[in-house]
Lab assay of single mutants.
Amino acid sequence: GATAVSEWTEYKTADGKTYYYNNRTDESTWEKPQELK
């Protein structure tokens, strides 16, 4: 099967917290998305 390329990108805020942003859905989350686990 084809490997899905994750749409999630990991970013850090100014105070060093990590969050994740999805370019396709324009969604952001503090929790690590399922695709990255």
Score class of each variant (00 low, 15 high):
Asn23His: 15
Thr18Ser: 10
Gly1His: 13
Glu27Lys: 07
Leu36Asp: 08
Gly16Tyr: 00
Thr25Trp: 03
Ser6Trp: 09
Trp30Gln: 08
Glu31Ser: 06
Thr25Asn: 05
Tyr11Thr: 05
Thr25Phe: 03
Tyr21Ile: 08
Thr9Ile: 14
Ser6Phe: 08
Pro33Phe: 03
Glu7Tyr: 09
Tyr20Cys: 01
Gln34Leu: 12
Ala14Thr: 09
Trp8Ser: 01
Ser6Tyr: 10
Glu31Lys: 05
Tyr20Ile: 00
Lys17Met: 09
Arg24Tyr: 15
Leu36Ser: 05
Gln34His: 12
Ser6Ala: 11
Gly16Leu: 00
Lys37Asp: 15
Gly1Pro: 13
Glu31Tyr: 07
Arg24Cys: 09
Gly16Thr: 00
Asp15Tyr: 04
Asp15Glu: 09
Ala2Val: 12
Val5Met: 13
Thr18Trp: 05
Trp30Thr: 11
Trp8Glu: 00
Pro33Cys: 01
Thr29Met: 07
Trp30Pro: 07
Lys12Tyr: 10
Thr25Asp: 03
Asp15Arg: 00
Thr9Phe: 10
Gly16Ile: 00
Glu35Val: 07
Gly16Arg: 00
Thr9Arg: 10
Asn23Ala: 11
Asp15Ile: 00
Gly1Lys: 03
Glu35Gln: 07
Ser28Met: 15
Lys32Ser: 04
Lys12Ala: 07
Lys12Gln: 12
Ala14Phe: 03
Thr3Cys: 06
Trp8Gly: 00
Tyr19His: 05
Lys37Glu: 15
Ser28Lys: 15
Thr29Tyr: 07
Glu10Trp: 05
Thr9Gly: 08
Leu36Met: 11
Val5Arg: 04
Val5Thr: 14
Thr18Ile: 12
Asn23Met: 09
Glu31Pro: 02
Ser28Pro: 02
Asp15Val: 01
Asn23Trp: 14
Glu27Leu: 06
Tyr19Glu: 04
Arg24Gln: 14
Lys17Val: 09
Ser6Gln: 11
Lys17Ala: 08
Val5Phe: 13
Gln34Phe: 11
Glu7Asn: 08
Tyr20Phe: 06
Ala2Gln: 12
Trp30Ile: 07
Lys17Asp: 09
Asn23Pro: 10
Tyr19Lys: 04
Ala4Pro: 14
Glu27Val: 09
Thr29Lys: 06
Trp30His: 07
Arg24Leu: 15
Tyr20Met: 00
Thr29Ala: 08
Thr9Leu: 09
Thr29His: 06
Ser6Lys: 08
Thr18Gln: 04
Ala4Gln: 14
Glu7Ala: 07
Asn23Leu: 07
